[in-house]
């Protein structure tokens, strides 16, 4: 696709700065194909995979580079549950709120998580370690109730196991912390 604005070089330069080379390259490859605007959802996935969330600056840069109205980009980003508009913590806890998990007590596990972490769904702990989210069914209903921390699935979780599981992750943070302080 040809350039679309008279300040195209400037648009590209700003976008590169905000989105990074990877995302810009991806957007440009999308623009080379038919119906490029239909790739908006894929582009936002790419940005989120790179930065963990979609910041306002990201959305603006995507709008400019894809030549899609900023209002539409913001509309799409806020419509879909999968997109996160706030930065996330080091570990992302996703508790499955699907039917099978609910019937097997996911609500009690969720309550325990909220009590332990002192945050509600969609929030991040003040130390930036955990973000808690409820997710739609992740399709492992045979193992309900299920909790995912990043990519690791914890199956058949009981409220009592919650502190033990969290402790393991906190331990990781502490170990990483002592390593860095040891080095400096």
């Amino acid at each position: 696709m040809s350039t679309s604005t008279d300040n195209w070089e400037q648009v590209q330069a700003t976008a590169k700065q905000v989105l990074g080379d990877n995302v810009v390259k991806f957007i440009e490859s999308c623009r080379a194909e038919p119906n490029p605007e239909s790739q908006l959802i894929a582009v936002l996935h790419k940005v989120q995979a790179e930065y963990g969330y979609l910041a306002e600056a990201h959305l603006d840069a995507v709008a400019q580079l894809m030549q899609i109205p900023a209002a539409k980009v913001a509309g799409v980003a806020s419509f879909y549950h999968y997109y996160r508009l706030e930065p996330r913590g080091r570990f992302l806890i996703n508790i499955c709120m699907g039917t099978a998990c609910y019937v097997k007590g996911a609500d009690r596990v969720a309550q325990k998580l909220m009590d332990e972490l002192g945050i509600r769904f969609g929030e991040t702990t003040t130390d930036g370690v955990f973000t808690l989210e409820g997710t739609r069914c992740i399709g492992t209903c045979g193992l309900a109730p299920v909790m995912m921390i990043d990519d690791k699935v914890h199956a058949e979780v009981t409220p009592d196991q919650v502190p033990v599981i969290l402790e393991k992750y906190l331990d990781q943070v502490r170990r990483a912390g002592s390593e860095t302080s040891g080095r400096t």
Binding site: N35, L40, I68, H81, Y82
Partner: peptide, 20 residues
Amino acid sequence: LGAGAFVCGEETALIHSIEG
């Protein structure tokens, strides 16, 4: 790819989603 919207299982919504 979808992006976590149950309504996209509805065919006209799904089409809109593919259209970006």
